[in-house]
């Protein structure tokens, strides 16, 4: 296998990791909203920021 294949596998791993991370964030946010519906706006903001940070890493991996 050449370097490019390994790079592809690495990208795949990172995407899996990012997906799991964002999934965890989304799930936790849902839990939090269910527990405290009045704090929905704040939780959503925090969720989007956290997801965006992970997404950034994911994209960096995909495009690097």
């Amino acid at each position: 296998m050449d370097a490019e294949t390994f790079a592809m596998i690495g990208k795949g791993l990172i995407v899996i990791g990012a997906g799991l991370g964002i999934g965890k964030i989304g799930g936790s946010a849902m839990d939090a909203i269910a527990r405290q519906p009045e704090a929905t706006a704040k939780i959503q903001t925090a969720m989007i920021i956290a997801a965006a940070l992970i997404e950034g890493i994911g994209f960096a991996a995909l495009f690097a």
């Binding site: 965006a52 940070l53 950034g56 890493i57 994209f59 960096a60 995909l62 495009f63």
Partner: peptide, 10 residues
Amino acid sequence: PFSLMIRLYA
């Protein structure tokens, strides 16, 4: 800022 750039572009 690099992640900002990549995120929007991607």
